[in-house]
Design a protein around this nucleic acid. Structure first.
Lengths: 168, 168
DNA sequence: ACCAGATTGACAACATGCTGTCTTTATGAC
DNA sequence: GTCATAAAGACAGCATGTTGTCAATCTGGT
């Protein structure tokens, strides 16, 4: 019954694609009436959990997304009044993103719902199995990054390399 | 070191998002010079592995994507000459998607590369760990679908599509 | 034969990711 | 002080997913 590793690997890849779509849909449904979406919620989370004010580029680095993708989401959040943009003493153009009171409320509500949702959906998984799967996915992520770096020039180097998001 | 299940679950979700992005980028890089992208390659694969001609809607069901998303990719593939659209005796409007010779060549090349890539990237994973992780992700997918169905009522067709789980 | 409902394809609008390019700004070498 | 370089934001364009809507087509019950 055990299929060969390459086939399992391919199946895993396809399952990641499917799960990604399903998770985005679930996140959207969970936060729709708060004026959020999965993407906005994630940006809100990055800002809320950062511990210090971040620039757009900083949020992008924290999330592993491109500067530009985050830029648009932040602009949308600012327009919706969920985040504010404060002057940055270190850089005149690079404003600092901070949660507005409405943003804090929305994020707190989303977090509370997410906690119940996680408990509900993850109920049937043993914590050990979750941890194992997480470790494997991280292993794959690391292997992918290494492989991309091997053939595609310099890519993501852990930190000191500021905005690395591929310059190929 | 074992963290509580809800936290692990959340971390797993975020890792799925990251891995999804990295996998798409890897697939794009792997097939760029063949005139393919991850999305086109996947559609080509669904057609190639189906065993019988499929309509656009059939491909969408097989892949778990919306009819419309597949529709545009198929249109692009047809314009690039990688697939052909044949008359469907059972439905005048719903053409059957088939690989053109060029499409077969491109898919064969992509498959060969993907096999080497999977062997390279998946080398450090034990087959058993892969299988366990795959099983867990499928469990989560199923739980998600159930949860969505519970609150959103109707979702996608229950089963019917017996051959959905890619027989790759 | 006929009509109601489901399926399908087409088109449009939108969300979210990416890259490319330009300008502004900060920093560091000289 | 000056200038090259890097980092950041803005804007444009594209790829790919979604949903909504409508018309054409098939199917099944009467």
């Amino acid at each position: 019954m055990q299929r060969p590793a390459p086939v399992l690997f391919t199946d895993l890849v396809l399952e990641v694609f499917r799960l990604n779509g399903a998770l985005l849909a679930a996140g959207d449904a969970l936060t729709r009436d708060l004026g959020l979406t999965s993407a906005r919620w994630q940006v809100l989370g990055a800002v809320a959990l950062s511990g210090r004010p971040l620039t757009v580029a900083g949020v992008a680095r924290a999330m592993g997304l491109s500067r530009q993708a985050v830029r648009r989401v932040v602009a949308d959040l600012a327009e919706a009044g969920l985040v504010g943009l404060e002057a940055n003493p270190d850089h005149r153009r690079a404003a600092l993103v901070v949660l507005s009171p409405a943003g804090q409320r929305a994020y707190a509500q989303a977090s509370a719902r997410q906690e119940r949702w996680a408990a509900r959906v993850g109920r049937e998984c043993r914590a050990e199995a979750l941890a194992d799967a997480l470790a494997l996915l991280r292993l794959l992520s690391a292997a992918l990054d290494r492989d991309a770096a091997d053939r595609g020039e310099i890519v993501t180097s852990p930190e000191e390399n500021g905005d690395d998001r591929n310059e190929s």
